[in-house]
Amino acid sequence: MRGFVFAFLGGAFITLQGVANTRISQDIGTWQAAAVTQFTGFLMAMLILMFIRDKKWKKFKRVNPLYLTGGAFGAVIIFSNVEAIQKIGVTLSIAVILISQLGLTFVIDGNGWFGLKRQKMRLPQLIGIGMMVIGVVILRL
């Protein structure tokens, strides 16, 4: 039950984040909104990291430097998310984001890119993505 509540709230926060970024962008601009919100989030995460005295961050050195840059995508992700919400609304934006996210992850897993263990592509996953696309079409009918 507690796990369910966490997962449920996590989803709510992700949606709220997109909507809040869109609202903030109207007043100060999208890149400004992306910078400000990620900066305050960064400060808070760093405080927590110091508080829990987790020394594991020293292991950054042992990670392929390419993977350390993933966060930089956040700028373009927030920008695109805000633009999409302004143009097609929250529901449709999130639905299409999920389709492309699950779809690309599926392709990456299937090919074993980025050193991931190669997974067999299976029909049910394709059917699932197909259903999501049909759902989006229904939204737009």
């Binding site: 927590i48 594991k56 961050w57 950054f60 990670v63 993977y67 350390l68 995508f73 999409a84 492309s100």
Partner: peptide
Amino acid sequence: GLIFSLVAGSLLSIQNIFNSKVNERAGSWA
């Protein structure tokens, strides 16, 4: 709007893969 959503989703997919590689070694707060 659809194109922006596709871009955001694709980047999220790659970002999540990268982040999970960092996460394996450095923990979630770092």
